[in-house]
Each structure stands twice: as C-alpha cells, then as structure tokens.
Write a protein that binds this DNA or RNA. Structure first.
Lengths: 198, 198
DNA sequence: GTGATCATGTAAACGGTTACATGATTTA
DNA sequence: TAAATCATGTAACCGTTTACATGATCAC
C-alpha cells in the first residue's frame, strides 16, 4: 500500500483555519507544531503548487505598494472535503528513529563514562524542550467548560510534556544503572591493583 | 551542515558483532531493534555495497552445494575505526512525526467521539507494543553484577517501555478530558431540547 | 548602515519505501 | 503439495533536506 503524503494534509489543515502564505505556514508550524512536526520551504512551496493544481486551495496574489508580492492560499470546498476524508482515516504506523538508542545498544564498545555522557546530554535536551512547552501554561478545566474547541491543541501539548518527561525519567534510571556498573568496574580495578602490588 | 547517514553506521555496528549477510541484518534489526529503527532490503544491499567499496566491510561469498549463494560481510579495521568515531559524535537532533497529534490538533473539525476513537486506537496499539517488550523480562541487577556489557541492550528496552507507557498515560488523560467535553455537550443539547419543547 | 524579518522560490542530492523479480529449501 | 523461510537483489518513485538565489522593509 502506498503511503499517504501527510504534508499535503497538514498544509490543508493550516489554510483551513485561515488563509496563509507559504511564509506564514512555515512560521506557524515552527511556533505551534515544531515539537512533533516540521516543514521546510522546499516542501511548502511545491506542495502548495500541487494543491492548487488539484483545486484544493485557491491562490490569490496581493500586490501592495512597496511590499514584496504575497501569495495567499485559501482552502476550497473540495479541499475541505479531502481534509475531512483524511481525518477519519486510521493513523498510519509511525516509527521514530532514536539515534541515541542505536549508540547505546553498541555502548559496550565505549567506556562507561562516554555512555553516561551521551545520556546526560539527551536528558538535558529533553529537559529544555519540556520547559519550553511548560511555558504555555493553562487551566485545562477552564477550557473544557468555556472553550471546548480549544482543548485539542492543549491535548497535543500534554502529549509533548508526557513524552519529554518519560525521556527524562528513563535517562535518570539509565544513568543510575551505568553508575553502578562504573562503581563495580572501579572496585574490580582496585582488586587487580592490590593483587599486582602483592 | 550535511546530515550523517546513520544506516551505514547501524549496519557497521551489526557486522562488528559478528559477520552477517544482508538477510541476517534485516532479521536481526527486526528482532532486536524494530521498536526504534528499521531497515528494508532496498537500503541494506546498496549500503553494504557502498561500505565494501569504502573498505569498511569485507565481503566473502560462500557457495555450499545445494544452497543459495550467501554473501557474508565482516567489518575491517578501517570500518571499526569509522564506527568508533561516529559513536563519540553528539546525537543529532531528531524529530519524531506524530500523525495522531496533527489529526488531534485539527480535532475541532470532527465530532468528539471520533477524536476519542482515534486516541483509543493509538492507546491500544501502544499497549500491545509495550506488552511485547515486557516479554523480554530480566533482572537488571543481575546483569549489572555479572554481565555488565549486556546492560546496554536492556537500557534500550527500558526506554521503549518508558516511552510506550507515557503514550498510554497520555491517552488515558486525553480520553478523560474529551469525555468531559462530550458530557458538557450532551447537557447543552438537553437544555436546548427542553427550551424547544417549552 | 547593519541585521533581523518579510517574502518567494529552485535544483540537486539524498534517504527511504515499494514493487518487482527469482528461485531453492524446509516444514507442515 | 502448499506455505513458509532462506536468500539476493534492482528500479522507480517519493519525500525531504540542503544549498543556492534574490530582494525589500523595518527597527536599532
């Protein structure tokens, strides 16, 4: 089964909220999506072109005096239909690739300290990312009662926090285990040295 | 900065443990890595060819009577050096793409039930994946004391369990929130109906 | 005037997936 | 005898990233 090009639907989703330019889309994705998705211009502009050709978005060019040309894209009824169709489709299998796990799997090749360092780096990065998300603080109960249509972005935020936290928890546990290994190694070395001195 | 082709290093890592054929590599990755990495033959065979051309692996062909030809790849000293070099390099930024979060972000377009359904499906999948990992049960303390070089694969396993668990916890929380939204909607509908009946 | 931001795009290269193609051996 | 497993590979396609290219406006 051929895979679905999700980038198309993400862009459709964005312009379904309000008309946007390629530049707007990039910025918006960076600001609100970046922890679970990202797109570059090299994808955005060609995709917008394709969507236009398929009649799923409508392009209007705004020329204001003394401003660069701005192409704004709006969703068409056909586009809205396509988007809705995709929304009900089951979520495709997705495999995250964790480089850190590959390196750690072959960790026996390196000194224990090196592996601890790699995990600590990972932990710090995830901590920073989590702190960033936590800045968007909110009272979810209030949203449920007053703006229920706004809970959805909050749910994605919540996932991010859960996910980063699990990385940090794992890192702490893993570092603890490797420190034990390290301590055992040191004791073994001391015993060896004592034997040599005897 | 150009990105590093990690597939090369993963294959190098695998053949560094013991010589393997393309078929072996595929099977091994499926069995031990699959929850955080996967590779297809379309990647394996050309990559092995490239590694051989660069002198990082050594290919030997085994022809046994009445058996298909088998190409076995061994790591060379140069390959081992390359691998070691990569191991100390910092882990590159990696962005997992969560289709479910995209769909959920635009969830306001769909009925609440539909969003709950999507999350439930996701939860079930993660639960199954976690159960699979938990089958490889182990006593980590024993490994630390008797086979410290074997703790590394266990650390990756631990990460998988943490990660799947965080997905499940999030799903439970998210479903709870959406069920509240649903209940509020129903109450609002009832009020509306009562008003119409008056 | 310098650097950030607004704004648009293209082309090449790369990485990865899918589909296609083949055929022997082993197990049920 | 049928299905699963062992075993190798290629070619086309698609999605993504990177580098390149341009230029105006705005804030300091």
């Amino acid at each position: 089964m051929a895979k679905i090009n999700k980038t198309r639907y993400i862009i459709l989703g964005i312009v379904s909220m309000k008309p946007a330019s390629g530049y707007d889309i990039k910025k918006w994705v960076e600001e609100t999506f970046s922890f679970f998705w990202d797109i570059g211009y090299g994808q955005i502009y060609p995709t917008l072109e394709g969507l236009e050709k398929d009649g799923l978005v409508f392009k209007s060019t705004q020329i204001e005096d003394g401003r660069p040309i701005r192409h704004e894209y709006e969703i068409t009824p056909a586009g809205r239909e396509e988007l809705q169709k995709w929304m009900t489709l089951p979520v495709e299998e997705e495999k995250c690739r964790y480089e850190i796990l590959v390196k750690l799997f072959f960790g026996y090749m390196m000194p224990v300290e090196e592996n601890i360092r790699i995990i600590e780096e990972f932990r710090d990065k995830k901590l920073r990312e989590m702190e960033l998300l936590k800045k968007f603080d909110y009272d979810i109960q209030e949203f449920i009662n007053t703006k229920p249509q706004h809970v959805y972005p909050l749910l994605t935020l919540l996932m991010g926090i859960h996910s980063f936290k699990s990385c940090i928890d794992w890192a702490d546990e893993a570092i603890g285990i490797l420190k034990q290994v390290q301590k055992n190694n040191e004791q073994a070395n001391n015993t060896d040295n004592n034997k040599q001195e005897e």
